[in-house]
Computed example of a mutant assay.
Amino acid sequence: MSISVQNISKSFKNKTALSDISFEVKEGELFGLIGPDGAGKTTLFRILTTLLIPNKGEATIANFDIIKDYKSIRNNVGYMPGRFSLYQDLTVEENLEFFATIFGTTIEENYDLIKDIYVQIEPFKKRRAGKLSGGMKQKLALSCALIHKPKVLFLDEPTTGVDPVSRKEFWEMLKRLQTKGITILVSTPYMDEAALCDRIALIQDGKILEIDTPREIVKHYPKTIYNVKAANMYLLIESLNIYKHKYSVYPFGEFVHYTDSRTNFNPEDLKLYLKTKNLKNISIEITQATIEDTFMELAK
């Protein structure tokens, strides 16, 4: 296994950040840690990259122990923290050269690994990092994390605050990196990005809720979900929440995802009820469960 985590726990004063976390990531796998802000993702990443020591449990990265072999881990992993942490007053080129020098290598030596990413920011190589757009900062940070050819790459919420086009490009880059044999552990609060991973772990309040492939996790959703829509979204949500047979009600884009507590649910009954609430243009259709639906169910 490229990453092995066994019973890791971490507390800060009276706050438990991680509780008995265990999972494994295979070599060359793109593994996603999926959960909202405050779920414990960043704390776990800092432990696995040897920046924090756990209260209990153990972990190995590329067969190196996170406590005993911390120096070896730092030489063999790439880490891209959630907040842009490069030197903002250095240029793109100077940042990359600096990180290459730290790891005793050169840009030229590992250029083949970062070429697909770097060519997109090369026209701005003389620009200071602090003056780059969000998407360009992201590409520079990834290039710096890869310049020493790491065995394992840790990416902590790499697409937060980045535009949709840059997000799509970033995940395409990760897929290409996978073909080069790099193991990737990525955290994200975006449920749509979870579907792009080989396997995912859903995390909430420092605990793992479930680990599986995105497809298998969605299969476990226990109920039929309906897309419900009406002319007045606010009134629709309010009306569904007070409906005596409702099981769950979640806004989902232009729809509301609704599940009913009855086994013999008839959508026409719900439509009649909504009409009594003065709702217009009502539509109710069966839809497929998503990872977000499954997460909300598991987190109850």
Rank of each mutant, 00 (worst) to 15 (best):
K244I: 00
V152K: 07
L146W: 10
T224A: 12
T213R: 08
G206S: 10
V165K: 15
D212S: 14
V218D: 08
P214F: 00
T159M: 05
P222F: 00
E172K: 12
P222C: 00
I203M: 00
P158K: 12
Y221K: 03
M233D: 15
Y190P: 10
N227I: 05
I242G: 05
L235K: 11
V152N: 00
M191G: 13
A194T: 03
E216S: 14
G161T: 02
Q204S: 14
I184Y: 12
I242H: 15
E193A: 08
I147L: 14
Y221F: 15
L140S: 09
D205P: 02
V152S: 01
A230P: 06
K151E: 02
Q204W: 09
T179E: 12
D198E: 12
Y243N: 11
D163F: 04
S239W: 00
D212I: 09
T224L: 14
P150Y: 13
R199E: 02
L202C: 11
K168P: 00
D212W: 14
R199G: 06
L202E: 10
S187Y: 00
L209G: 09
L177Y: 02
K180V: 06
V152T: 08
L235T: 08
P214N: 00
Q204H: 14
T188H: 03
D156N: 09
N232A: 11
H220W: 04
T188V: 05
K149E: 03
I200F: 00
L177R: 11
D212R: 10
E169G: 09
I184C: 04
P158C: 07
K207I: 11
L146M: 06
A145M: 07
E193L: 03
T188E: 03
V228E: 01
V165M: 08
Y221A: 10
E238H: 12
I200R: 04
I217P: 07
E169H: 10
T224I: 14
L209E: 03
L142N: 06
V228M: 01
E169C: 11
D192G: 01
P214M: 00
Q178H: 02
A145Q: 01
R176L: 15
K175G: 01
P150M: 15
G161V: 02
K207R: 13
L196M: 12
P150I: 07
Y234T: 13
V228P: 02
D163N: 09
M173Y: 14
K223V: 03
V228G: 03
P214Q: 01
T213E: 03
Q178R: 14
L155F: 04
I242A: 12
E157G: 09
I203A: 05
L209H: 08
S187C: 06
S166E: 07
